[in-house]
Design a protein around this nucleic acid. Sequence first.
DNA 1: TAGCATTTTGCATGTTCCTGCGCTTTTTTG
DNA 2: CAAAAAAGCGCAGGAACATGCAAAATGCTA
Lengths: 254, 254
Amino acid sequence: MLLAERHQLILEQLNLHGRITSVELAKSLAVSEDTIRRDLNKLGELKLLHRVHGGALVMQEETPDYFDRLNTPDPSKKRFLEPALNMLEAGQTIVIDSGETCRYLAQNLPANLPLTVVTGCPLIVQDLMQQPQVQVIQIGGKMFKPAMRTVGHSAIEMLKQIRFDIVFMGICAFHAKHGFCVSYLEEAEVLRATIEQADRTVLMGPHDKLDKTKTYQIVPAHKINHLITDKGIRQDVQSSIQALGIELTIVPSN
Amino acid sequence: MLLAERHQLILEQLNLHGRITSVELAKSLAVSEDTIRRDLNKLGELKLLHRVHGGALVMQEETPDYFDRLNTPDPSKKRFLEPALNMLEAGQTIVIDSGETCRYLAQNLPANLPLTVVTGCPLIVQDLMQQPQVQVIQIGGKMFKPAMRTVGHSAIEMLKQIRFDIVFMGICAFHAKHGFCVSYLEEAEVLRATIEQADRTVLMGPHDKLDKTKTYQIVPAHKINHLITDKGIRQDVQSSIQALGIELTIVPSN
DNA sequence: TAGCATTTTGCATGTTCCTGCGCTTTTTTG
DNA sequence: CAAAAAAGCGCAGGAACATGCAAAATGCTA
């Protein structure tokens, strides 16, 4: 095998997995680890990868402006992130639903935490594709424009074959008596199927979405495990939520 | 054997395998390694191949990293669109594969033509979401970063349940004898499943992708129905393609 | 066709580059 | 702090390379 050819294969493997160890490369390319080390050092000098002890990581590129054009998000929603990020552990499989708050979560996942992230929203898939430590599973199906996500039988069938550690969703409407609701039947169906597969469901959103209802109930309130909202929540609403055994995290208002 | 003739043979061998060593060439062409080295150096100067220690690699214009290409789109690829757009009829279900040429197609669909468009690329999904006359079906599965598309068993199973009128794909490598090829096994599997479900498969791409091969064959050449390429295609290549019964459309070079 | 210049080719030479091994040093991990 | 893993260093054999030169092939002109 030619040296230059081996360099190409190394970069290919690296882009594929986001990370690579010297030992793996030496084995798969059938050369000594010394040779691999020399390769990685050279490629590192050329700024084609990020050389680290034990192997290499993909070059962290700064966020292309391409993604900034997509929308003009509201940075105040970032305040919901911290409690959510603290729940994450290496190796988990999580769902990040569609919506602006969820998108912030996808964009701000810790760089050193390997995760499998499942989503039906193409915008979030794009955000996640830039993070080498994340494996991305895209839920297929008919695109449903109002929610910017896939819905329908195909989507539900695919969801049924995966088990999730945590599901993160934005709050559309939550009510202690009427549960977690949305405005569209198709969306409710697919969100219900998602929650069904999860060990733990976490909702994030401002307090004014609480004590509200919409036409279609996804699940009753007690199926939700954790709510992250901001200050301003009414005392009686807070009590009724906690009475259901739902963990409540309240972040400062913007 | 004439020098120019040998140069031609070297380039042919190179396109066929993507790589070639001086030793192999010296043996197969029955000349000394010194002569081969001189040949390779000259061809390297002419930018017809990538000269490396021990042999040569094919010149690769494409960047393996999809995100680099996104930031520098090449509008000249739009010239392939017109013949493709003329094939479309109202009510059809079509596939638009991933890739830059395909993305231009997705962005330039006629506004008055209702279509169902299927794709596994989230970028293309997003382009299509802005077009109200188009219903979008997203193919689910594991996201495969080098090709910016979904792959794997889930994707193939979902594809098997849909029938397509036309499949549009970019040419990665096409060879009359070795068929339609790509560099990755996962990609080949899902593209094969896609073509299997289609009445008609149309490839679009510049002429320098013809008479080339990559590691994995998707389908043999005769499974392709229509090729859209640009001027510059060699006469013998053109003949061999038409001999297979493949319709050929040649657009002006940029 | 003969004569001469140019190009191409193969060989011999010395040089550079690539690779694996043994060794020591540094880093990581429990 | 100790064991293990990874890295760095130098060396030697071999492969690939560049260079010079002479023989062979080719092209051009008289």
